[in-house]
């Protein structure tokens, strides 16, 4: 059930068309069609197990790693189906932040931030590297905490710091779209609000798709919201409208805490 306002999205950052994802025979995402507006934060909400992560991971073709997962449908980026673009190129356009922090254990904090360049064999001058590292770490409000220990292993950081490091790693490579799977679920309230402020700031230059369990977070920072239930897209619209005036009874029940 798509609200009228959505019909207006022109020139979307991503156009998801009839997307299905199967784990073996289990259809975890069912015929989802959505246009994601550029330079917005779009929140994906829904109870645990409804397919939020599965939908998100279909967008940068993460599922291709696993033989038992199959996807159907189309996702257009710049009017091109993501399945027609080389996966490597696609993933450079889409940064991803995972549910659990996963810094590279063999790399220092510094190397983790520029891992995108390092792993892709893109050489930067020392000055450029320093600049990318500092800017990315400042963006995620981690710079002051780690500026004296940049050459220590990233895995020595606390869970919340590691997650911000992973966000910095995704930002450093300059993607167009950032996919985030509950990026703040491991953070304390202060770090969470820092990351939220960051997302609001980032949407000037990036399009952000954010899976979140936290409804107040979705209400605070997202422009559009997408509510999923049992693999289906139930409702999609401007966050303000969805929170004040949900159309589908299941959305209303979820938002008022009846389930989820």
């Amino acid at each position: 059930m798509i609200q009228d306002t959505i019909a207006e999205i022109k020139n979307p950052a991503l156009s998801i068309q009839d997307l299905c994802v199967y784990y073996d025979q289990n259809k975890a995402v069912k015929n989802v069609s959505v246009d994601i507006k550029k330079n917005t934060v779009t929140a994906i909400m829904g109870p645990s197990g409804c397919g939020k992560s599965t939908l998100l991971r279909a967008l940068n073709r993460m599922h291709e790693l696993y033989d038992n997962i199959r996807t159907e449908g189309k996702v257009l980026i710049h009017d091109q189906n993501i399945y027609d673009v080389p996966a490597i190129k696609l993933r450079r356009q889409m940064g991803m932040v995972f549910q659990r922090p996963n810094p590279f254990p063999t790399m220092s904090i510094y190397e983790n931030v520029i891992a995108g360049y390092k792993l892709n064999g893109i050489r930067l001058k020392k000055g450029e590297k320093d600049e990318v590292v500092e800017r990315s770490l400042r963006d995620v409000a981690l710079w002051d905490e780690v500026k004296d220990t940049l050459h220590k292993k990233g895995t020595f950081l606390s869970g919340g710091q590691q997650q911000r490091l992973c966000i910095a790693r995704a930002l450093a490579f300059g993607p167009e779209i950032i996919l985030m799977d509950e990026p703040t679920s491991a953070l304390d309230p202060i770090a969470t609000s820092k990351v939220e402020d960051l997302l609001v700031k980032l949407k000037e230059n990036y399009t952000i798709i954010l899976v979140t369990h936290n409804m107040t977070q979705a209400a605070r920072i997202s422009d559009y919201s997408l509510f999923m239930y049992l693999g289906e897209l139930v409702e999609y619209g401007k966050t303000k409208n969805m929170f004040t005036n949900p159309i589908d009874p299941r959305t209303e029940q979820y938002l008022t805490g009846k389930f989820g």
């Binding site: 993933r91 450079r92 790693r169």
Partner: peptide, 17 residues
Amino acid sequence: PNTLKEAALALGTPYHK
């Protein structure tokens, strides 16, 4: 853990790298 492999792939890293 697979998550490490995913983290590298998500940065657009070619598989052999």
